[in-house]
Design a binder for these strands. Sequence first.
DNA 1: CTTCGAACTGTTAGTTACTACCACTTTGAT
DNA 2: ATCAAAGTGGTAGTAACTAACAGTTCGAAG
Lengths: 187, 187
Amino acid sequence: MGLRDRQRAETRLQVQTHAVRLFTDVGYDATTVADVAAAAGVSAMTVYRHFPTKEDLVLYDEYDPLTASAVAAQPASLSLAARIGHALSETAAHGSSSEKAFLLARLRLMISVPALRARHLDSQYATADAIVAALDRSSPEEEFRVRATAMACLGAAHVALIRWAETDGEGDLPGLIRQALTSVFGD
Amino acid sequence: MGLRDRQRAETRLQVQTHAVRLFTDVGYDATTVADVAAAAGVSAMTVYRHFPTKEDLVLYDEYDPLTASAVAAQPASLSLAARIGHALSETAAHGSSSEKAFLLARLRLMISVPALRARHLDSQYATADAIVAALDRSSPEEEFRVRATAMACLGAAHVALIRWAETDGEGDLPGLIRQALTSVFGD
DNA sequence: CTTCGAACTGTTAGTTACTACCACTTTGAT
DNA sequence: ATCAAAGTGGTAGTAACTAACAGTTCGAAG
């Protein structure tokens, strides 16, 4: 990996870090993209080169492919809901390890800012698509069943994620997700 | 109800009707608010006086309070998921009666346009809030349980709604919602 | 019926997110 | 050493909104 890639990654991180800090301290709407660019020491154009929209300064990652492959890796002997639920819990265990404070700040923004909350929910929709693509191999009726189950599990897991953020990330996220799922499905 | 209110309602309907038609025929992004205003024979400012954002030209209603009161009216002997699920199915039975073609056009936009899809999902989030407010009367743990169940049921119902729109509203929506919920919960 | 306040509408000017285009610099491979 | 490619900045432009002002119309009180 050359110097160019390293500098690009560095710039990207700087921009995003300053963005989340300003959004948290000053407010999302009260902070312009020009403000973020100035704080990061770049031009506004450079911000848009790294992040397609202002919202993406907060919402860049997402674990769609990871989740989908985790679902596919579950033993087929389990029920559909159990396979999806376990996969979600496992994926959360991997994702939430590094830089918890930064992730928490981003999550709080995703909860409190309407535009970010909406986009975050839409990314769940994309995750459901990925799960359907990873599992569905038969009839439209089966796809309907898989998609409904996936959306239900993702909805429950989302509540766990919010709870985790509201308690400052002190509980363990995979456990909260399992708790949310069992309180819905009994199992 | 005076002439003023009638004219206001008339203008609002005209604006929204032309908006949905233009969005469907020309495209959401390719249609400007000025285009909508011109088609409806009003100024752009008038559009904003009736609808806070361009997105709200498609997403105005939503049945939060209806759903919440329907949930509260379910017999407490049923399980939590059953109470919420039945309430969703009942609310859908009331809402989908009048002007199906217009509702379908709006739904198709909510599915295909990313910004509208995101806001539509966020309105589900608001519905979950209303359900929680209607049911929760005890501990934070109970609220967690209610919210997780509500989001799960709403996620499944959303899949039914999409399916209904994709099949041009020919199946019955309450039945599809029940089908989605039973394919998730077994019950 | 007249009059006066309030609401509806239009116009204008401004902010901000975002895009297209052009020129300049820097990197990395030949 | 050179040249193509990529990163960066500047300018200009579109479109979603907002604030403030002025004109018009409705509706209620006298």
